[in-house]
């Protein structure tokens, strides 16, 4: 639903903004690393984490300096992988044909489709993705022929995520409790909310 809305809005934007000789479609694909700090749940010590991240942004130029579109990525955190899907904007500051500054903003959600929950006779566990927001700044170095450019980006990425571990009722069939904050059939539920905050350094190309 969300994705189809994204495509539709891009399509509309593409149609309404196809002006002049300026190329409408803009793609920026980058790979890099996320740097963050995580507090160990056992010792309380803060540990550094470095994770792989990639992002591909597809957009339509709506004016000389602005591109809107959507981004799709792959972020690998310590034990899990997330596919962030977001609406995005890229703004360019500088003269054509020269290195430019790129400002960017992506907002959307992280999908945990790659993470399989577990289900057994005793209970069930699963992940639910959450909001992702990522402002970024970067540099745009156009290539010799002016088609492909090299990009370098620094971003802050905020990814929310929840992990649920539920255990089923002890007695085979039991009544749901009316005031329940628990889904029917569960005896307990552990919800772990994660907020990953990372500094992302990425490098790639755009055309």
């Amino acid at each position: 639903m969300k994705v189809s809305f994204l495509f539709l809005s891009i399509f509309v934007l593409t149609l309404s903004t196809g002006y002049g000789q300026e190329k409408v479609y803009y793609n920026q694909t980058e790979f890099g690393a996320m740097f963050g700090r995580v507090e160990s749940q056992w010792s309380g010590d803060t540990e550094e984490r470095i994770n792989f991240s990639m992002l591909t942004f597809h957009g339509a130029r709506i004016s000389k300096h602005h591109v809107v579109g959507f981004s799709l990525g792959f972020d690998h955190y310590e034990n899990l992988s997330i596919i962030p899907i977001a609406l995005g904007w890229r703004g360019f500051f500088g003269k054509d044909g020269r290195a430019q500054l790129i400002g960017g903003f992506d907002i959307g959600g992280g999908s945990t489709i790659l993470e399989k929950g577990e289900e057994s006779e005793w209970g069930k566990s699963w992940y639910e993705g959450g909001i992702m927001a990522s402002p970024s700044v970067g540099a745009f170095f156009p290539g010799k022929k002016g088609k492909t450019a090299l990009t370098v980006t620094i971003a802050y990425k905020r990814q929310e995520l929840a992990y649920y571990q539920g255990s089923y009722e002890q007695v085979g069939t039991q009544r749901p409790i009316i005031i329940s904050q628990l889904p029917p059939g569960y005896n307990s539920m552990t919800e772990t909310d994660y907020l990953f905050q990372s500094l992302v350094l990425r490098m790639g190309f755009s055309f």
């Binding site: 963050g36 984490r49 905050q197």
Partner: peptide, 9 residues
């Protein structure tokens, strides 16, 4: 850029 982890039981 510290992660935040909260668990509710």
């Amino acid at each position: 850029c510290q992660d935040e982890i909260t668990t509710t039981y």
